[in-house]
Amino acid sequence: MSHERHEPDPEVVALASRVFDHARQGHTQDLGTYLDAGVPVNLTNDKGDTLLMLAAYHGHPDTVTLLLDRGADPDRLNDRGQSPLAGAVFKGETEVARVLAEHGADPDIGTPTARETALMFDQRDLLALFDAP
């Protein structure tokens, strides 16, 4: 069995970089075009951040909605054990946190959890959202 290491194709790396930038910058329509063309909705970067994590952390509720509607996993943790919901709470992105919670994101997963993060920053509105029926 060969254990050769293959260098990544520069064109694939450039494409992935563009896709992650669209998520990070909230370019919802452009990102949707890439998803329509077959880019996996749960694609991760070298830190385990999904497109959803990047869109959530950078405060783009429309992009977050698109990704969730396309089947993104709201509870996928990155390599540091952080959830998209905890990232949004940490950054004070209330609308993004609301969208994630409405799509079933679990406030009690990851390290720290979204609930713990909301407690640390005394974000009572988000705590109430997590406890809503």
Rank of each mutant, 00 (worst) to 15 (best):
M1N: 03
M1I: 04
M1A: 09
M1K: 00
H3R: 09
E4R: 03
R5H: 15
R5A: 12
R5S: 12
H6I: 07
E7L: 13
P10S: 10
V13R: 04
V13H: 02
V13E: 13
A14D: 15
S17M: 06
S17C: 07
R18G: 09
R18Y: 09
F20L: 00
F20Q: 00
F20V: 00
F20K: 00
H22N: 10
A23Q: 05
Q25C: 03
G26M: 13
G26P: 07
H27W: 13
T28H: 13
Q29K: 13
D30N: 12
D30G: 06
D30I: 05
L31E: 09
L35M: 06
L35F: 01
D36A: 07
D36V: 00
G38P: 05
V41L: 10
N42S: 01
L43H: 00
N45P: 08
D46K: 00
G48R: 00
G48I: 01
G48E: 07
L51T: 02
L51Q: 02
L51H: 01
L51R: 01
L52N: 04
M53A: 09
M53F: 14
L54A: 02
L54D: 00
A55E: 01
Y57N: 09
H58P: 03
G59Q: 11
G59V: 02
H60E: 14
P61N: 08
D62A: 10
D62Q: 14
T63F: 13
V64D: 09
T65R: 06
T65E: 13
L66E: 08
L66Q: 03
L67R: 00
L67N: 03
L67E: 05
L68H: 00
D69E: 14
R70I: 11
R70G: 11
D73K: 01
L77N: 07
L77E: 08
D79H: 08
R80V: 10
G81P: 14
G81S: 08
Q82I: 08
S83K: 05
P84T: 03
P84K: 01
L85M: 07
A86R: 01
G87V: 02
V89K: 06
V89C: 09
F90E: 12
K91P: 07
E93R: 10
E95Y: 11
V96H: 11
R98D: 15
V99I: 10
L100I: 13
A101E: 04
D106K: 02
D106M: 06
P107I: 06
D108G: 07
D108P: 05
D108V: 04
I109H: 00
T113E: 15
A114S: 06
T117Q: 11
T117N: 02
A118N: 07
A118V: 05
R124D: 15
D125E: 15
L126Q: 04
L126I: 04
L129M: 12
D131E: 15
